[in-house]
Amino acid sequence: MLDDRYLVWRIKRSSEWALRRIYNHYKTDLLALARGLLGRNGPAEDVLQDVFVKFIESIDTFELTGSLKGYLAQCVVNRARDYQRRDRRRAREPLLAAGQTTSEYHGPLGAVIADERRQRLVAALAELPEEQRETVLLHLHGGLRFREIAGMQGISAKTAWSRYRYGLERLRSMLNGQVEP
């Protein structure tokens, strides 16, 4: 991947090429993060788009101090929180409608099994306390280190790590038989 600072510099000079590079590089992880936080595809895509629109609109004054992915992941989290606050009453829709999963299962039957497992995992993620869900997703999809997550959440790195471990443990117990050694 090209240097993010260089690409940001190019976008400041209206380079469509650089915007494509950044979007294509981070879209998958950021969308997964948004989906994990919101539990639905449509809103997750809206959040992804909103985050990038704000990024472009503020590009003239934008100064990259850490990792760009970390910055964008934080924007996704903030935007997802806003979305949830406005949208508390809306029920969660199944996440699976728009995606295929990486799966060890093959063939039509395999796809059904993978689909069911995925549904369960999404439901389990949705059941996690918000701070644990955010921590797990920011670490696994946002690629953020615990120190960075701690900075975002205003907690210590140790607490961020604990939230992550508790989150994983909780997911494991909710999924029980699905998580074979």
């Binding site: 879209k27 998580v179 074979e180």
Partner: peptide, 14 residues
């Protein structure tokens, strides 16, 4: 295994 499953949720949209 749980980490891997969550990671595998990262499939992109169409």
């Amino acid at each position: 295994r749980v980490e891997e499953m969550v990671r595998n949720l990262r499939e992109s949209a169409g």
